[in-house]
Nucleic acid binder design. Structure first.
Length: 427
RNA sequence: GGUGGAGUAGCCAAGCGGUCAACGGCAACAGACUGUAAAUCUGUCGGCUCCGGCCUUCGAAGGUUCGAAUCCUUCCUCCACCA
């Protein structure tokens, strides 16, 4: 399973995760174990599956015998990376960034392995950037860059052309990231930086600075932006980003996101998000051609990724619930445990019936969040898109009989083919 | 600074005094067919609704008119060409 230390780039390459690399990166990696880092912006209190791509880069680095260093931008997060952004960002407060840093550290910690000779390190650039004084920074870092060079970076160039321009604050961002690379080189002997393809400019700023400051040759590798078969940025569902935080995206929803994926994406996603070896993945890809209906590839993908992020127990629950909802069918047989799990994993609402005790279908679906409004619920009802306890409702079913309540006063609602919600009727 | 053009729902884009909540396309949602897939076909698609309607929209603010997305005035923004 473990490959030799020289295989990192080859590993990324067959997985389709290698975009750009600095000259000499392969030779440097082949020469022996290195320490490589990747930064994560604390723009929210959770990473999402888009961030997971470069995190997987660190995981592969470690499995290939190198030391991964995960950096959380507690300092740079206070500035804002202009890369890939069309307009200036709203500054975040120190408290907000610190809370985000803490949450993201915990997520990174769950995926990386901290034991052994190549145990991962977790660092926060706020530790050195926040105490960095301006004069020192300008003399030691700023002096090594010409503005002419900085202006040529894509991230800056595109913003110069736009009406809103770019503030001096964000313009300086690349220098801070370059400073990080130099600092990590000095403190931890880091000689490699990984990042998404939009980070190339920032990464080369870092390799340049380390060369000038320490006379050392360090390297950068970027991973491609992940897109789906429809050509869209991967990781967005209709509900927004797919988060790694169980409070934002439940393990069930996370599992379902990968399970529901397009056949055409399955192979790419297996290569990107699982640690399965090449032969296994190719065998799974073959099953799509042979027996696509079994969706063996998607099932494996969803199970592997959910296990990686949420752990085995949560993955098992997600699979059980999925089986329950999509395979078996009769909600009346649901156990108390299953109902409790459902309440945690699918949208849940407690509703109070009207004074006369009648259960209004439209209000139920609207309250459960499965429809935007009662009007929207009505349209869905008329189109035959709603069901209760696995039984499709007709256009005339504007109220629900109380004798359909499951144990504990629950009703299992479904909108369309796969959106479930659970409500508990009070009293 | 000058001249000309343009700003319409999530995006693109018609409309140029009433029949406009606004043609059409994309995206999205639902149904049929399937495999919790894709493609295809059908329907929905500003907000709310006691389904009778009600409310708010066509860059912004005023005005003309019985009536304006459509005409007028001022302002804002973008694009092109000229300086």
């Amino acid at each position: 399973m473990a490959s030799s230390p020289t295989d990192f780039l080859a590993e990324l390459a067959w997985r389709g995760l290698l975009f750009q690399q600095t000259d000499g990166a392969a030779a440097a990696l082949a020469a022996g174990p290195v320490s490589g880092y990747c930064g994560f912006d604390p723009t929210a209190d959770s990473l999402h599956v888009g961030n997971l791509v470069s995190l997987m880069g660190l995981v592969h680095l470690q499995r290939c015998g190198h030391r991964p260093v995960a950096l959380v931008g507690g300092g740079t997060g206070l500035i804002g990376d202009p890369s890939g952004k069309a307009t200036e960002r709203q500054l975040k407060t120190v408290e907000e960034v610190q809370a985000n840093v803490a949450a993201i550290r915990a997520q990174l910690g769950r995926v990386l392995d901290f034991d052994g000779a190549t145990g991962a390190r977790l660092v926060d650039n706020g530790d050195w950037l926040r105490s960095l004084d301006l004069i020192t920074f300008l003399r030691d870092t700023g002096k090594h860059f010409t503005v002419n060079w900085m202006l040529q970076k894509d991230s800056v160039e595109s913003r110069l052309a736009s009406e809103s321009g770019i503030s001096f604050t964000e313009f300086s961002y690349m220098l801070l990231q370059a400073h990080d690379f130099a600092e990590l080189h000095r403190r931890h002997g880091v000689t490699l930086q990984l990042g998404g393809s939009d980070q190339w400019g920032n990464i080369t700023a870092g390799t340049t600075l380390v060369r000038k400051l320490h006379g050392a040759e360090v390297h950068g590798v970027t991973l491609p932006l992940l897109t789906n078969a429809a050509g869209q940025k991967f990781g967005k569902s209709e509900a927004g980003a797919v988060w790694l935080d169980a409070a934002r995206t439940t393990p069930y929803a996370f599992y379902q996101y990968f399970l529901q994926g397009d056949d055409r994406d399955a192979g790419k996603l297996l290569r990107t998000f699982t640690l399965l070896d090449r032969a296994t993945i190719e065998a799974l890809e073959a099953t799509i051609g042979e027996n696509a209906a079994a969706r063996e590839a998607q099932r494996t993908l969803a199970r592997e990724v959910t296990t990686l992020i949420h752990g085995e127990a949560a993955a098992r629950t997600a699979i059980e619930l999925s089986t329950l909802l999509f395979q078996k069918g009769d909600p009346a047989t649901l156990s108390d445990e299953a109902l409790a799990a459902l309440a945690r994993e699918v949208p849940f609402a407690s509703v109070t019936p009207a004074a006369d005790g009648a259960l209004d279908t439209l209000a139920l679906f609207a309250d459960a969040g499965l429809a935007e409004s009662k009007g929207a619920a009505r349209r869905l009802l008329q189109q035959g898109g709603l069901s209760v306890n696995g039984v499709k409702l007709g256009a005339g079913d504007t109220t629900i009989d109380r004798d359909r309540l499951l144990r504990g006063g629950h009703l299992l609602l479904r909108k369309g083919a796969r959106d479930y919600g659970l409500v508990r009727v009070q009293g």
